[in-house]
Simulated assay, not measured.
Amino acid sequence: MAVWSGHLCRLITTEVRTARSLGLLTTAEAEQLLARLVLVIDQAVSPVKP
């Protein structure tokens, strides 16, 4: 994973945890959202195989 994608994952994690602490997301919703976003970011930076 590229360095910038690691920073992006940490930033998103912070934002999602803040939303959870403010009651905007449940714990389950936050965990599921983070899991999905990590997969999407990983796929976005992975090289495309022919």
Rank of each mutant, 00 (worst) to 15 (best):
M1D: 06
M1K: 04
A2L: 06
A2H: 07
V3K: 04
V3F: 00
W4P: 03
W4F: 07
S5C: 02
S5V: 03
S5F: 01
G6A: 07
G6H: 01
G6Q: 09
H7E: 10
L8I: 08
C9V: 12
C9E: 10
C9L: 09
C9T: 08
R10H: 09
L11I: 08
I12F: 11
T14P: 00
T14I: 04
E15A: 15
E15S: 13
V16L: 01
V16A: 04
R17D: 00
R17H: 12
T18S: 13
T18V: 06
T18L: 10
T18R: 08
R20T: 05
R20Q: 13
R20H: 13
S21E: 11
L22F: 14
G23N: 15
L24F: 15
L25T: 06
L25H: 02
L25M: 08
T26I: 05
T26Y: 10
T27Y: 02
A28Q: 04
A28P: 05
E29A: 15
E29C: 13
E29V: 13
A30G: 11
A30C: 03
E31C: 04
E31P: 00
E31L: 07
Q32G: 11
L34D: 10
L34P: 10
R36V: 05
R36Y: 04
R36H: 10
L37M: 15
V38F: 06
V38D: 05
L39S: 02
L39K: 05
D42C: 09
D42I: 02
Q43R: 14
A44R: 00
A44S: 15
S46K: 11
S46F: 00
S46Q: 12
S46Y: 00
S46W: 00
P47Q: 11
P47N: 03
V48K: 13
K49R: 13
P50L: 10
P50A: 14
